[in-house]
Computed example of a mutant assay.
Amino acid sequence: MATAAVVDPGFARLYGEPLLRMPTDLYIPPDALEIFLDAFEGPLDLLLYLIRRQNFNILDIPMAQVTLQYLKYVDQIRLHNLELAAEYLLMAAMLIEIKSRMLLPQRKSDNDDATGDPRAELVRRLLEYEQIKVAAYDLNAVPQIDRDFVRPELYIEQSLVPKWPEVNAADLQNAWLDVLKRAKLTEHHRISRQELSVREHMSAILRQLQSSRFVEFADLFEGNAPVPIVVVHFVAMLELAKETLIEITQAEPFAPIYVRLAYSPA
């Protein structure tokens, strides 16, 4: 009986033809797997990639499938670079522990109705890592200087830019005083004529001295009186002293000056 020949389908096809053996000129870099793993930031990044690629619900992770796929990656890199795989092996041990705890029957404790989900801590770490990764991606999308745009620089000759001196408070005060000084030079002064009687002021001084024995010199003059009146009042006082109607006395040098009526014996 003739049997049909079994055709070897090969392990791959090239231009429609099956490949029955590995090409001798095919070169695979020894660090190809390491370069692939360097694309991940760590075990959480690789685990999150496996979950999202399979469209698994991160709140209900099928630990058996995820652990199996994760271990395949770890087994490959462990043969080439054990130092690179050390951090990934720690996560693999955690996945195996979670998977083993899920296989055990749940026991009710005295305080709680049921034990917690063994995947809860892993889910929490994955969610936090994903939030941070999205935030980092959004932050990286913000335009950065010297990466996305260049700040324009314009060089100007120093001689073309006028540099004004700074004005301080003392300079401003001196300028204001100079303005006042020049304003006084152009100020108009009007002289008015006023008739004043020395005799009337002499009588006023005698009336003022009759009510007091001694009157201080400064008290004879009103503080707000105009200058012409003060001058005439002083001349009137000198006339009274000249006619010996009043006496101007002083107890000692630099002592107050007093004015009184001249003493006349009874």
Rank of each mutant, 00 (worst) to 15 (best):
A5C: 10
V6W: 08
V6G: 01
R13F: 10
L14N: 12
Y15E: 12
P18Q: 14
L20Y: 13
R21N: 10
D25P: 02
D25A: 11
I28H: 00
A32H: 11
I35S: 07
L37G: 09
L37R: 02
D38E: 07
A39G: 10
F40I: 05
E41Y: 09
P43R: 01
P43M: 01
D45R: 01
D45K: 02
L46G: 03
L47D: 05
Y49R: 06
L50S: 05
I51Q: 05
R52L: 11
R52I: 04
Q54Y: 10
N55C: 00
N57I: 10
I61H: 11
M63Y: 00
M63Q: 06
A64W: 00
Q65N: 09
Q69N: 09
L71P: 00
L71C: 11
Y73H: 08
D75P: 07
E83A: 14
E83N: 14
L84F: 11
L84N: 07
Y88C: 01
Y88H: 04
M91F: 03
A93T: 10
M94V: 10
L95N: 02
I98M: 03
R101L: 15
R101D: 14
R107L: 01
D110R: 08
D113G: 12
G116A: 12
D117K: 01
R119I: 03
L127D: 04
L127K: 07
A136W: 10
D138M: 15
V142S: 00
P143T: 11
P143H: 06
D146F: 13
V150S: 11
R151D: 03
R151P: 03
P152G: 05
E153T: 13
Y155G: 00
Y155V: 13
I156E: 00
E157W: 05
S159M: 06
V161N: 02
P162K: 10
A169Y: 06
D171Q: 15
L172K: 10
A175P: 00
L180P: 07
R182L: 12
R182K: 14
R182C: 00
K184L: 09
E187G: 04
L196P: 04
S197A: 09
R199H: 08
A204E: 15
A204D: 14
I205C: 07
I205D: 04
L206K: 11
Q208A: 15
L209C: 08
S211V: 14
V215R: 04
E216K: 03
A218P: 03
P226F: 03
V227G: 02
V230R: 05
H233W: 01
A236I: 02
M237I: 05
A241Y: 03
K242T: 11
T244I: 02
L245V: 01
E247I: 04
E252D: 05
P253F: 01
Y258R: 03
V259T: 11
Y263T: 12
